[in-house]
């Protein structure tokens, strides 16, 4: 019978690619497990409640900044100001938010509004986001230095209390990372408007033709980047208890690396919030704990960190080529 042969011919091979695709999806998690295994091998005592608390403490602000970056990368833009913005938020948190909470909240809300405004500017004037955000990075840095010329200030007590939580059995950074990843995953990957937001990065013209506002998607995504930048700055100050104008400078490149490590791509709206959080955790672990346990002197740690990054990205590119 013809119908039988037809269905036979019309179902060709895509499924056989699945194992590789699966491997590629799991790569961020695999690299995290690999790093954890290395740490466990070098220092078994680190794999404990307090060990994780110590090692992953700084991972939460990095994960939040990485998600902020991810929102911007989703719509094919790049944010070079996220690091100094986190620093600026930190300075506001340790000064105004502590002394005059209302002023502090207003300033932080203003920062988010400025971010959303950058999205509008970039879309309407068709400006390269790299240039705009590079410029803004100097603005945030300058404001932070004006606010807090010398390291100092004090974190609000409620923030210290929140970041110092000690939930039973599972260390706080792990709980926080899971909650953050799941919330953003549902918001961006599973909600119906999330599909539109990602579609804007995949094929903006198609979104436009379907009657959605591209301006709105850019505004929302940059606005969300601002919101998560604020969260990142708050979390950072909650851990460090005081601020410094340069405290977040390293976050810009860390956040970009985290997104890519987590399976995201610079263009095309292909991102993964869960991957990004895992990427941020991997970066945080690979940065100092692993290398300290490997007895690598601090002078060489930054370089070693870079090499780990290159190895993971190379593995991903390799899998991507065969799976794609």
């Amino acid at each position: 019978m013809t119908p039988v042969s037809l269905s036979g011919t019309a179902a060709p091979a895509r499924r056989p690619l699945h194992p590789l695709r699966l491997l590629r999806t799991l790569l961020p998690a695999l690299s995290l497990i690999l790093i954890l295994a290395a740490i466990a091998y070098l220092n078994p005592r680190a794999i404990s409640y307090f060990g994780f608390n110590l090692m992953l403490n700084l991972a939460i602000p990095i994960a939040l900044a990485t998600l902020a970056q991810m929102f911007v990368i989703t719509i094919n833009e790049l944010d070079l100001s996220i690091g100094t913005f986190v620093g600026f938020v930190g300075c506001v948190t340790a000064t105004w938010l502590h002394d005059q909470p209302l002023l502090g909240i207003a300033v932080l809300a203003g920062g988010v509004a400025v971010y959303a405004g950058l999205g509008v500017l970039i879309h309407l004037r068709n400006l390269p986001s790299i240039v705009v955000t590079l410029g803004m990075s100097f603005v945030w840095q300058g404001l932070a230095i004006l606010l807090l010329p010398k390291p100092g200030g004090k974190a609000p007590d409620w923030l210290l209390g929140m970041m110092g939580l000690k939930p039973p059995f599972v260390p706080f950074p792990v709980v926080a990372a899971i909650v953050i990843a799941v919330v953003v995953h549902f918001g961006l990957m599973r909600s119906s408007y999330g599909a539109v937001l990602r579609g804007a990065g995949g094929n903006g013209q198609a979104i436009d033709r379907a009657g959605w506002s591209l301006l709105k998607t850019k505004m929302i995504m940059f606005g969300l980047a601002g919101v998560f930048g604020v969260f990142s700055g708050l979390a950072l100050i909650g851990i460090t208890t005081s601020a410094d104008a340069n405290i977040g400078n390293g976050y810009t490149l860390l956040s970009i690396a985290g997104v890519i490590l987590g399976g995201g791509e610079f263009v095309g709206g292909r991102v993964s919030p869960i991957g990004a959080v895992i990427g941020a955790l991997t970066l945080a672990l690979a940065a100092s704990p692993l290398l300290t346990f490997m007895h690598i002197p601090p002078d060489w740690q930054v370089g070693a960190n870079g090499i780990i990054l290159i190895v993971v990205l190379a593995a991903r590119a390799l899998l991507g080529r065969r799976g794609g």
Partner: peptide, 10 residues
């Protein structure tokens, strides 16, 4: 005019 990064359903 499909978005290549999205699924068929999306």
């Amino acid at each position: 005019s499909l978005c290549p990064n999205l699924t068929v359903a999306e």
